[in-house]
Design a protein around this nucleic acid. Sequence first.
DNA 1: TTGTATGCGTTATCAG
DNA 2: CTGATAACGCATACAA
Lengths: 347, 347
Amino acid sequence: MTPLKRITIRDVSERAGVSTAAVSYVLNGREGKVSQETASKVRRAVEELNYIPDFSARSLAGTRSKLIGVVIPQTEDQKQLLLQNPFYSELVCGIEARLRQSGYHMILSGVDKGEGYLDTSMQRNLDGAIIMGIYQESFYDDLKRVKVPIVLIDSYVNDSYFQTVSIDDEAGGYMATKLLIDNGHTNIALVTGLIRKDGVVEKRFLGYKRALKEAGLFYNPDHVFEHSVSYEYGQEAAAAIAAGHPEITAVFATSDLVAMGVLRGLSDAGKRVPEDVSVVGFDDIPVARMCNPPLTTVRQNIVARGAMAADRLLKAIEEGEASLADDPSVARLELAIRQTVQRLAPS
Amino acid sequence: MTPLKRITIRDVSERAGVSTAAVSYVLNGREGKVSQETASKVRRAVEELNYIPDFSARSLAGTRSKLIGVVIPQTEDQKQLLLQNPFYSELVCGIEARLRQSGYHMILSGVDKGEGYLDTSMQRNLDGAIIMGIYQESFYDDLKRVKVPIVLIDSYVNDSYFQTVSIDDEAGGYMATKLLIDNGHTNIALVTGLIRKDGVVEKRFLGYKRALKEAGLFYNPDHVFEHSVSYEYGQEAAAAIAAGHPEITAVFATSDLVAMGVLRGLSDAGKRVPEDVSVVGFDDIPVARMCNPPLTTVRQNIVARGAMAADRLLKAIEEGEASLADDPSVARLELAIRQTVQRLAPS
DNA sequence: TTGTATGCGTTATCAG
DNA sequence: CTGATAACGCATACAA
């Protein structure tokens, strides 16, 4: 319950009987600038006094703030962070863990519609930022002006100023489809959000087609159900499949959320999963293992992806942008095999 | 793409032809200290130069940092934030929205095992903190020493230094049980995590008993299934109910996670929900609406609770602790009626 | 190798 | 009402 008074670098220097400069050198690892003896005296004093540096002062003095801005998208009404979305929350987990481990802190925020991020990054002297989601062009222009390293996640801005961390969506689509093919399925529907050029979904779609082709299967556009990334659309598509496509024995949904809807829709239509129809999702969000039956899906390891983004950013900050390879980091994918895929009995 | 140079308060003062002090006054709303004319000259200059204040400098100069520390628990392995838990992520959403709205930023982090939060809060000159989860005693002692306002969520530390924001768990338990009773059920099981003295769960349990009593129903200890807050336990309890308690027509699970397990367990045992057994959960996490059938539950409005915590903290910061009523804030509860409760046909 | 002095951007004090 | 000026805590160029 001691009142707790701020210990400054000067207190330390007096205690150790050296100058403030010496203390600063030791603190910043500028060994070689001070003698072994001074260094140990300083370290002892720091220990005894329980010195805690003031980052505001550091930041002001022109060095690092050790602060990273992390931006995630907001809900439609622009009021809340989209943190309920497991995708973003896992990403944030990965980022935070890595940052903390390296002595950085994270300012997590959304950005108000129409506002930029320039203010925040200037106010706080951010050392860097990780941006998720998609914004208007001027947003990115502002970002470039502050000249700190930036990592983009899930944003397809094609500008070499920004670092990106992605996954191999094409391979993921391939894996999912291949799994179904390997289990004897030949009529595989794709249920997905809008397929936009260069979007995540398009890549998964491409993987789907590649797997079909490789297996010598015919690609049937009628088996592609494309609309929106939502639980509701999954239901809808499943209803359509159950009603009009008896030949379809398997569904690849490009997102777990959609897959959950498909499960529900099939069930409502009296189809059993996986006995009548097999289903594979994408993402492996936590509900995937809790739904009934547990969903087989493509695991993104989203947390690892967050950590990767943080890594890349820290490297750019501490070793300069030049230290980074030009190619984007790509996170690994794997299958989470559960209970929604069944081997098709040879008919 | 202009290079972007830092505009200081001095630049503004020169542009406006006044002193830096005058600028500072205007910026901080110390009207009355300057003339109307000076004020408008300053405002114009700020606008023209696009001046952005440096919070590091502000913080160093002894005023507010406008930074709030938000701490959430970590996973077992102490590596990641527990943000995957919808409860925490929603809380964070609520907090962030309110803070940003008031010009504050949030540093979101976990706390390493054995470490305290004193370092962070000193380093960053935090104006306050919101702490979720439960920590060792020394952690709270440290917190008190920094003398900034603190709000605790879900922590039952009984110390008037800390503010708390809670929900009326007892009322929630009552609401859920009452709903079932109103639908004609008389044999209602309680499936729950460990009932600890003064814990959240105990209160819900008390509400359950009160509703029974009020309806003139007999409280049967055999209808209480108490073990752990997990999906798996829900399954297990449901199996036990299906196997050994044909008289039970309804279940109140004190957590949605458990309720999900109950749904699954009943289904595995060949019981239909809600035709054979009705189920009510607690929390209203997002999966509640996605599961099959959609779960009727007690909505916590977790986001609102986060906002409430932020409100309370900001008030303590800006108006002093004294401005706060002594009684803790209590967030409202409501029922989310979906499809797992059915009116019992009179037999 | 060590210490002194200055500046970083703001706020606050205290004479004008 | 206004304007110099001294902190705030730290890092660093420069002098010793």
